[in-house]
Simulated assay, not measured.
Amino acid sequence: MSGIRPADVVTFGESMVLFQPMSDGPLAYAPLFTRSLAGAESNVAIGLSRLGLRARWISRLGTDPFGDFVLATLAGEGVDVSQAERDTGCPTAVYFKEFKGYGDPNVYYYRKGSAVSRWTPDHVDRSWFEGAKHLHVTGITPALGPSTADTVRKAMTLAREMGLTISFDPNLRRKLWSEEQARETLLSLIPLCDIFMPGLEEAEFLVGSRSEEDYGAHFLTMGASAVVLKHGEEGSIGFTPLAAVRVKPHTVKHVVDTVGAGDAFAAGFLSAWLTNAGDGDEPRLSEALERANLMGALATQYRGDWEGLPKLAEVERLLAGSRETTR
Rank of each mutant, 00 (worst) to 15 (best):
G78D: 10
E85H: 12
T88R: 15
D87T: 01
K97H: 06
F66N: 11
D125V: 02
R111N: 09
P105Q: 12
V116F: 06
Y102R: 09
G101Q: 07
S117E: 04
A72C: 03
R60P: 02
V70W: 03
A84H: 05
E77F: 14
K100T: 14
V79T: 10
R111A: 10
V124A: 00
E77C: 13
T120Q: 01
Y110A: 09
E98A: 05
G89V: 03
E85M: 14
R118P: 01
S59I: 04
Y108G: 00
K112G: 03
S114Y: 05
Y95D: 08
V107M: 08
C90V: 01
R111T: 08
D87M: 11
G89D: 15
P121A: 07
V79H: 12
V94I: 15
S117D: 05
P105N: 10
K100W: 02
T63D: 15
R118W: 03
K112I: 07
D68T: 13
A84Y: 05
L74D: 02
Y110I: 12
P65Y: 06
S82I: 07
E98G: 07
D68M: 03
R60M: 10
V81T: 15
L74C: 06
S59A: 14
N106G: 12
T63P: 00
G101P: 07
S59W: 05
F99C: 06
G101N: 06
R118N: 05
E77M: 03
Y102M: 06
V70M: 05
D80I: 14
G101S: 09
F69L: 14
W119L: 15
D122Q: 13
R60S: 02
F66G: 00
D68K: 02
L74H: 08
V94L: 15
C90P: 00
F96V: 03
F96L: 15
E77D: 14
G67A: 07
Y95V: 08
A84F: 05
C90Y: 13
A72N: 15
